[in-house]
């Protein structure tokens, strides 16, 4: 299972207040299970899953699930380094966790890669009755800050695969574009840079996550499900 082949490996971090369901999002995505007896995350937890995108590309997601409590913030932020994707999670039944989103956003912008794609995730959407943060709240914050947005339920699996698939796809696009640009002064055929594009990353090649090639205007995509 661990020796599988893949075309790319992308580091994704999860962050957000304690108890919003970060670990269960990872659990749902990587194992398709929900653990109602999960313990609080101390430090960081790590998981991987390889998925297929763009018909034939295998992408390995290296997921770093960080602790949410305030006291751990400085250690947690050290895990953002090298991340090209971040899921910033809040709980739709907990207004406080949504109010803290700007603080988390700042943390990730300061510590992750410059072109790190950020997706705002409103979790626990199955708890209709207790909802205090509405879709429009999340969507409008995401739009204002150039983030992708989605609501999920780790419990009933709604939106979870979509969230990870979408962010991996966007990372793939951003990173291949970046790679093409950095290679041989733009030989590649037509902007898409899809299959077989000359100069595209070869199979098995890992996109280095620490390279500092700059790409002007790293595109932050507008919403997934919420972005219309």
């Amino acid at each position: 299972m661990d020796s599988e082949s893949y075309d790319f490996i992308f580091k994704i971090v999860l962050l957000g207040d304690s108890g919003v369901g970060k670990s269960n999002l990872v659990f749902r995505f990587t194992k398709n299970e929900f653990n109602k007896d999960s313990k609080s995350t101390i430090g960081v937890e790590f998981a991987t899953k390889t998925v297929q995108i763009e018909d034939d590309k295998l992408v390995k997601a290296q997921i770093w699930d960080t602790a949410g409590q305030e006291r751990y913030r400085s250690i947690a932020s050290s895990y953002y380094r090298g991340a090209v994707g971040a899921l910033l999670v809040y709980d739709v039944t907990d207004r406080n966790s949504f109010n803290h989103v700007p603080m988390w956003l700042k943390e990730v912008e300061e510590n992750a890669e410059k072109d790190c794609l950020i997706m705002l995730v409103g979790n626990k959407m199955d708890l209709h009755e207790q909802r205090t943060v509405f879709v429009r709240d999340g969507r409008s914050f995401a739009r204002k800050n150039g983030l992708a947005f989605i609501e999920t339920s780790a419990l009933d699996a709604t939106g979870v695969d979509t969230a990870f698939q979408r962010i991996l796809q966007e990372i793939y696009k951003t990173q291949t574009r970046k790679q093409l640009k950095s290679q041989a002064g733009g030989a590649g055929g037509g902007g898409g840079g899809k299959d077989g594009a000359p100069g595209g990353p070869a199979r098995g090649q890992t996109i280095s996550l620490t390279q500092n090639e700059t790409i002007e205007n790293p595109q932050k995509k507008q919403g997934c499900c919420g972005g219309q």
């Binding site: 304690s18 108890g19 007896d37 999960s38 313990k39 609080s40 409590q69 406080n96």
Partner: peptide, 17 residues
Amino acid sequence: QETLRQVLVDVPRTAPD
């Protein structure tokens, strides 16, 4: 209040097994 909130979040997650 924050402490109380955090404690109450964690108590059900303590040795849940």
